[in-house]
């Protein structure tokens, strides 16, 4: 039964992949694929951040640090010429996970406000390391000289279609994993901590250990997002690790909604499409963005997907009230 549920997610993901894989067959507009890659990178970044913000109740303002760590470590490994792409990919995940675990061990002991501050402080530390360790990272010019993309298993990531399919595939695997995490006992334990940390502790939950685990997982997934971006721009730049990147992540969550699993992804899509369209037609990106924020804050008062999902739920609930008075909820099974 449990394996079946997991299989069901995988089948859905596979179907989505088939649809996404059809896009390059019906159009030769590479820029649509580029937008797809951007969505994969930023969407994974936002979804992973929401594991902390929405699920664990930890407002991290340093998530961009792990995105940058993923991009730089992958880029540097590939530039040595000693690793295949899958090997560098795997090593980077291990490295970023270890790095986030280390940061988490320091941060999770602090209360909410200080937690947010110290994550920001770590991000600034990473950023400054990137800037000052010029011999390794290229400093403020970024990782130069391009990232070599040797062919593996017949996949040539220099080819934009291959890169697009590669990113979509891994992205979907990550989404399934993240969804499984939120639906597992572990995910519910994170929600317990979010809802009521003290009570979770009194129910025998080792709260800090779970926070560290959540932070580590989120960091690792953000690192994968960073790798997508490194592959896309064929480089890595300090701006990936600047606080504005973390801000963008939080922004995507706010736009799309933090209570619905796919909310942050919707937020990432909104932000990216908005950015694409505004740069084509105007230089006033900030102005357009400001207006959109106003609409969301004053109009919807929550993220778009939350607004839709919760709206449907409320409507259903009120309909139920009108039609029948259920004595026993439907899902109740008599014993």
């Amino acid at each position: 039964m449990q394996i079946n549920t997991f299989t069901r997610y995988s089948v859905v993901a596979l179907l989505v992949f088939v649809v996404l894989a059809a896009i390059p067959r019906i159009t030769d507009d590479i820029s649509i694929l580029d937008t797809g890659i951007m969505i994969c990178a930023n969407g994974l970044f936002a979804l992973s951040l929401n594991l902390l913000v929405g699920r664990t109740g930890l407002l991290s303002f340093g998530h961009g640090g792990f995105y940058a760590a993923g991009a730089y470590s992958f880029g540097l490994l590939m530039q040595t010429g000693m690793f295949s792409i899958p090997a560098a990919f795997a090593l980077t995940i291990v490295f970023v996970a270890a790095l986030s675990a280390l940061v988490a061990l320091v941060c999770v002991r602090l209360n909410e406000t200080y937690f947010t501050f110290i994550t920001l402080a770590f991000q600034m530390l990473f950023y400054n390391i990137i800037l000052s360790w010029t011999s390794l990272t290229g400093g403020d010019q970024g990782l130069l000289g391009g990232i070599p993309k040797p062919v593996f298993l017949g996949i040539d990531l220099v080819n934009p279609v291959h890169l697009y399919l590669f990113c979509c595939g891994i992205f979907l695997v990550c989404v399934v994993l993240l969804y499984q995490i939120t639906q597992s006992p572990f995910g519910y334990t994170l929600r317990m901590i979010r809802d009521n940390t003290e009570r979770a502790r009194f129910l025998g939950v080792a709260v800090n250990r779970y926070k560290v685990a959540s932070f580590t997982l989120a960091g690792a997934f953000a690192g994968i997002g960073g790798m997508f971006m490194a592959l896309f721009v064929s480089g890595a730049y300090p701006s990936f690790g600047y606080w504005t990147m973390s801000g963008d992540g939080i922004f995507m969550i706010m736009l799309g909604g933090m209570n619905t699993f796919l909310g942050p992804l919707v937020g990432a899509i909104i932000l990216i499409v908005l950015n694409d369209l505004t740069t084509i037609y105007t230089d006033h990106y900030g102005l357009v963005l400001g207006c959109v924020i106003l609409v969301f804050v004053l109009g919807l008062r929550r993220g778009l997907l939350d607004f839709i999902v919760e709206g449907i739920r409320d409507r259903r609930a009120s309909k139920m009230d009108q039609t029948i008075q259920p004595t026993v909820p439907k899902e109740e099974i008599p014993r």
Partner: peptide
């Protein structure tokens, strides 16, 4: 959900990742 979570915690099964909470 609250009670299931509490029972899971008691049984040291809170950290399980590969099963569904709704089906434990």
């Amino acid at each position: 959900e609250s009670l299931t979570a509490a029972v899971l915690s008691h049984r040291q099964q809170s950290a399980h990742l590969l099963v569904q909470f709704s089906a434990v």
